[in-house]
């Protein structure tokens, strides 16, 4: 495990992506809590309309406004926003056209979904546009309102397309309000203010997708941040026993003697069960080790987060945040 770098500390927009099922939303929330630790104000944003943040923090669906959802140790606070492309488009149009009632009707008819479907890039431009606005917003004192913004982004398969606003704009009008805004978004996303973190599991597909995503990000001139390895299981066996056990060999007489020394007298069946569990553990440890080696090809800071056997609840988010803080996240 390596740690958070000075460069990452300077980032203000933390984009979190990962293969589906890797725990991207959980890690994004934990990262927001970690960044808020010590008294900072952080905004956690989701863009896929799934209300994952509300579920995670066990509360009612978030409206289209920034709500305070959690406190962090040391007086920090995390706010949350579920950006909705339709609402963003209406908000946007309202700035330039007076749509009023007609806007709401069009929304009911699905006309707006239609417009965003017509040009898939439009949806992305609207969502990233809103994120940029949050990152750059300043308070009355002229300082940034949020010290950092964490974006729970689309999964690895789509994230580069999502962030590659320049390409999306190729489909859209060459002039007009969106064009002007998108230039600011491009500047932000390609600057040192933005880092794209990738959540991975130590399994074949997530590792493969992580490496592919790093290459794609590099090619699009976007900045990969850290690899956040989720659900890392504890390694229990002494290093020298692992490869032997992974081949199916557990020294049962030694185990039995050890158990007897601890006052456990177990029957053959239970001993066999323990040996089988040990072999499976060793095989898994080995395959996770291989996955970790493959991940190191990305040459990115790699942070490990433990598997939580009790599942993920709000308390667990703080636990994960603490792990991140210990690894240097600030």
């Amino acid at each position: 495990m390596t740690s958070w770098t000075e460069e990452l500390t300077r980032a203000r927009l933390h984009v979190v992506s990962g293969k589906g099922g890797t725990g991207k939303t959980t890690i994004a929330a934990a990262l927001a809590l970690a960044l808020a630790t010590g008294g900072r104000r952080v905004l956690l944003v989701e863009v896929e309309g799934r209300q994952g943040i509300a579920q995670l923090f066990d509360r009612a669906p978030l409206p289209y406004s920034e709500e305070r959802i959690a406190s962090a140790p040391g007086g920090g606070e995390v706010h949350a926003l579920a950006v909705d492309a339709e609402a963003a488009l209406l908000e946007y149009l309202a700035m330039f056209y007076n749509l009023g009632f007609a806007g709401r009707t069009l929304r009911k008819m699905g006309a707006i979904e239609f417009a965003t479907t017509l040009a898939p890039g439009l949806r992305d431009v609207l969502l990233t546009g809103k994120v940029k606005e949050c990152v750059n917003r300043t308070g009355p004192d002229g300082r940034h309102l949020y010290d950092a913004v964490v974006l729970d982004a689309p999964p690895t398969g789509r994230v580069v397309k999502f962030l590659d606003v320049t390409k999306a704009m190729a489909d859209l009008a060459k002039v007009g309000p969106i064009k002007g805004q998108s230039e600011g978004v491009v500047r932000l996303l390609h600057s040192g203010d933005t880092a794209v973190h990738l959540v991975a599991l130590l399994e074949e597909m997530p590792v493969r997708e992580t490496l592919d995503a790093v290459a794609e990000l590099d090619a699009a001139d976007l900045r990969p941040g850290a690899v956040l390895v989720n659900r890392v299981n504890p390694i229990r066996l002494p290093a020298r026993s692992i490869s032997v056990a992974a081949e199916g060999r557990v020294d049962e007489s030694r185990v039995r003697a050890g158990l007897q020394a601890a006052g456990l007298d177990l029957d053959e069946f239970t001993l066999e069960g323990l040996a089988d569990e040990t072999v499976e553990h060793a095989i898994r440890v080995q395959s996770e080790k291989e996955a970790m080696e493959l991940l190191s090809e990305s040459d990115l800071p790699t942070l490990e987060l433990p598997e939580l056997t009790d599942g993920v609840d709000v308390a667990a988010l703080y636990e994960l945040a603490e792990v991140l803080v210990t690894a240097g996240v600030r």
């Binding site: 002494p238 020294d251 030694r254 020394a261 601890a262 553990h281 056997t309």
Partner: peptide, 19 residues
């Protein structure tokens, strides 16, 4: 006691598995 590290490891990985 520092004895039998293999047996101790087996017990712990079993407890993880039960959880």
């Amino acid at each position: 006691s520092g004895e039998a590290p293999l047996a101790a490891a087996v017990l712990r990985l079993h407890a993880d598995r039960v959880a």
